[in-house]
Design a binder for these strands. Structure first.
Lengths: 192, 192
DNA sequence: CCAGTAACTAAACAATTGGTTAGAAACGAG
DNA sequence: CTCGTTTCTAACCAATTGTTTAGTTACTGG
């Protein structure tokens, strides 16, 4: 009996994700979302409840973009070098037409008032924790003991965040140098 | 003949700096600046021209906070270890009552729309370039050749940015681990 | 004391923010 | 066709943004 929806949620969220990714949360207004998503404010609120609702759906869509890279990481038996390859894969994901947008999650955490917007923070924390566990698993496969693996995973999480930030500001070769140098250093600590 | 100013620019900018540092640029409104600086909007505009003017003055005040650490770095003959000490000194500067506010410059660059606000970006870039040159000088003293010193200085700039970001999110011990690990790695590359 | 200049107060400015709502339009089962 | 349900259009909402301005107050050289 009802009228048919003229859009698909997945499709309009894809547009919103790109917009948030390029502009950040606070620099993306509802009217900008309207024009970019191609639907009216009413429809946005009907489908996602609030601006924050749109953003959380965008974060989930962003996370889904990493599936191929994550599957590849999981299935690899290259240990530490698989993590390095994962970092390069993420760098590809950050890449835009001419520059790098960085990691949407890292960007967001850097922009938030921290204490408010707990739902958004929880979404980000969930993805970070997931990646940390992935790193730990790979490091254990690589022969490290649990305690060292935990420490190194923390180090890698910070490093990944750094790569996101650096990719937005510094030339790509400098970021590559940074990755190579970092993993050489980690490898060296594994030798003895 | 004129009436006397009831405040000192330096003093009110100090308050503004703390506010921007904690909240970020976009989350600091003019009315919040009014109450924190303790003077009226009129006076703010008379002294600094615009919100951006207040912010740029705050960035300069922030930069001045580093003078002691920078003098110490310049005068040290400890080469690479002097840079490490400088990083720890900066970490102290970032420290607030209970948590870390990170580096105001790094925070700002992470929050900006990049393409607009060129005056702000120029102010930040100036400080980054200054620090890079400091690092290069120390590395040359440490016996590196020019090309390697340049590369390592770039690496250190990224690392410093990472420390700022990490200090806001991760426990202080993890950040200390990160610094120790990074400088051990750099030292190792200097040995051969 | 007085006049001129500057700094103050407080109200208002237009523009934009995230969010809402009344009514028209489109659908499909009966 | 008609009725009930849902989506859409478009105007509107109060609140807040950065900025300006008219009018008052305070100081000081003459």
């Amino acid at each position: 009996m009802p009228r048919k929806k003229s859009y698909e949620d997945n499709h309009v969220i894809e547009k919103a994700t790109q917009l948030f990714w390029r502009n950040g949360y606070h620099n993306t207004s509802m009217s900008l979302l309207e024009s970019t998503m191609g639907i009216n404010k009413f429809s946005i609120y009907a489908s996602f409840g609030s601006k924050q609702g749109v953003f959380i759906a965008s974060l989930q869509a962003y996370r889904a973009l990493h599936s191929p890279a994550i599957i590849k990481l999981k299935q690899s038996d290259q240990g530490l070098m698989a993590i390095k390859a994962f970092f390069y894969d993420c760098l590809d994901i950050y890449h835009d037409t001419d520059c790098s947008k960085g990691c949407l999650m890292s960007n967001t955490r850097a922009q938030l008032n921290s204490h408010k917007e707990t739902k958004v923070l929880a979404e980000i924390q969930s993805f970070v924790d997931y990646q940390r566990q992935l790193f730990i698993d790979k490091l254990l496969e690589h022969g490290l003991d649990q305690s060292t693996a935990n420490k190194q995973a923390n180090y890698l999480i910070i490093t990944k965040q750094s790569i996101s930030a650096a990719s937005k500001v510094h030339p790509i070769e400098q970021v590559h140098d940074y990755i190579e140098f970092t993993f050489n250093a980690i490898s060296a600590t594994h030798k003895h």
